[in-house]
Design a protein around this nucleic acid. Structure first.
Length: 183
DNA sequence: CAAATGATAGGC
DNA sequence: CCTATCATTTGT
């Protein structure tokens, strides 16, 4: 299993969101290697996507989204939970893929169903915001198995974006996987 | 269904 | 400076 290259992330965000399914998120904390298989993602586009943090331009919080692909965009939401994204597309495009659920593979304690729980179980917080995904303690490996069957659904928790954007099928799940954040 | 909980975007 | 809001989770 090889680490995903920068070129993998430097592509259309929907393609990255789809192709991340089945890949392994690896996080080393305190010498213990935690591994989860990515089973659910959401694409947050650059430009007009009103659900995306980037849609109203660059701010202090979202500036990592506009930077080079292959970095983590991690932020605190609702004052208590972290969300992890991977930045996609070239510099200047504010796009990223949210990781929503993992299937436990190695040294996982607690639920990984939902973006906040995923970060908690993997030991991911804002200190990793802006970090690239090519470190031995924080990286994503290419999927070992062949392309899984995928289903598309609307994104979760983005009603504020209005029907045009909240209804778009920008959530990607591995079909029939028991570790999705919701059925 | 509503509370928890704190950073922050956007308005003044 | 002020405060409404939030890419969620948990418990009633």
């Amino acid at each position: 299993m090889r680490t995903l290259t920068r070129a993998f992330y430097d592509r259309d965000t929907v393609a990255v969101a789809r192709d991340l399914l089945g890949c392994w998120l690896v996080r080393d904390v305190g010498g213990v290697r935690r591994v989860g298989r990515i089973v659910e993602t959401e694409a947050y586009l650059g430009g007009q996507d009103r659900a995306s943090h980037s849609s109203r331009g660059m701010t202090e919080r979202n500036r990592v989204m506009f930077g080079p692909p292959g970095h983590a965009y991690v932020y605190l939401v609702y004052g208590m939970h972290h969300c992890m994204n991977v930045v996609t597309e070239p510099v200047g495009t504010g796009a990223a893929v949210l990781l929503r659920a993992l299937e436990p593979v190695e040294n996982i304690e607690g639920s990984t169903r939902g973006p906040g729980l995923l970060c908690k179980a993997m030991g991911i917080d804002r200190t990793l915001n802006g970090r690239d995904l090519f470190g031995s303690d924080f990286r994503i490996l290419r999927a070992a198995d062949s392309a899984p069957a995928i289903m598309r659904r609307p994104r979760i928790g983005v009603d504020y974006a209005g029907p045009r954007w909240s209804r778009r099928l920008l959530r990607f799940c591995i079909r029939r996987n028991p570790f999705l954040s919701r059925p």
